[in-house]
């Protein structure tokens, strides 16, 4: 296990000494929250109807922002993976004295740490600037949702980085995934406002499962039995992505 700190150190050096990485990891979702969120909050001044109650859009959106943070960090790591393959260092990593498991664990551990930091910032700013009242007793579960979600996205998005060789193809697919998965979900809006085909697509989207979970445990709004079932789905998604990712990395060279 002594290679895991080396992997974490490498990720730390790369991701925290570059303003670009820091921006996309930590601050991009906040821009959505503080600009997009505020704009829609004003536009929907009466709030969003959810589970029979009207809630301010910002409060509704915070859960989605936390899910976006997880997904975004997974996407950034996937991009980093792709670039590492492209410039050859990934293959050199595979010759280092560590198992493939240690390599992946180190990466996912770093991702979970940075997602937690980003979530703390989002929750802090959401509470302080936007006046969102949080369900404090449930915050530990929020962090559980962030960590498991980040791990799931890491393994899922890693598959594309390891399977696609061409830069243009990778960028197209990842951007499509970003757009479809974030917008065909409950991240930005409640699903009952959507046409039935879009609702169906959103219900089978892991972003929805994560956003609903985080929303419930930040502001206490949502269908708890449905959320618990969706959590099981997400764990299955994580397990399948993990398995696929580890099989691919073993065959990669």
């Amino acid at each position: 296990m002594k290679s895991i700190p080396a992997v974490v150190y490498r990720e730390y050096l790369l991701r925290t000494t570059s303003l670009t990485w820091l921006f996309f990891d930590l601050f991009m979702p906040l821009i959505y929250l503080l600009i997009f969120g505020i704009g829609f909050d004003r536009a929907l001044s009466e709030g969003i109807m959810m589970e029979g109650q009207l809630i301010p859009y910002n409060e509704f959106f915070l859960g989605g922002i936390l899910a976006m943070t997880s997904f975004g960090i997974g996407m950034n790591t996937s991009y980093g993976f792709f670039m590492d393959r492209d410039n050859g260092i990934f293959y050199e990593h595979l010759t280092y004295p560590m198992t493939r498991g240690e390599f992946l664990l180190g990466k996912v551990l770093f991702n979970c740490v940075i997602a937690t930091v980003a979530a703390i910032i989002a929750l802090g700013l959401g509470s302080w600037i936007l006046g969102i009242s949080l369900s404090v007793a449930h915050l530990p579960l929020v962090f559980v949702g962030i960590i498991i979600g980040t791990a799931g996205w890491f393994f899922f998005l890693m598959i594309f980085a390891l399977r696609i060789r061409r830069n243009d193809m990778y960028n197209t697919i990842i951007n499509l995934l970003y757009f479809i998965m974030l917008f065909a979900s409950s991240l930005f809006y409640p699903l009952d406002l959507l046409p039935s085909w879009l609702t169906t697509a959103a219900l089978i989207n892991p972003v929805t499962w994560q956003a609903d979970f985080l929303r419930y445990f930040t502001i206490g709004v949502g269908d708890l039995p449905q959320i618990m079932l969706q959590s099981v789905y997400f764990l299955i998604f994580l397990a399948v992505s993990f398995y696929a990712g580890t099989v691919i990395i073993r065959k990669i060279a």
């Binding site: 490498r10 410039n87 050859g88 260092i89 293959y91 010759t95």
Partner: peptide
């Protein structure tokens, strides 16, 4: 030392 270039580009 692999045939292709391999280094941490941004370090």
């Amino acid at each position: 030392v692999l045939q292709q270039n391999a280094f941490e580009l941004y370090l």
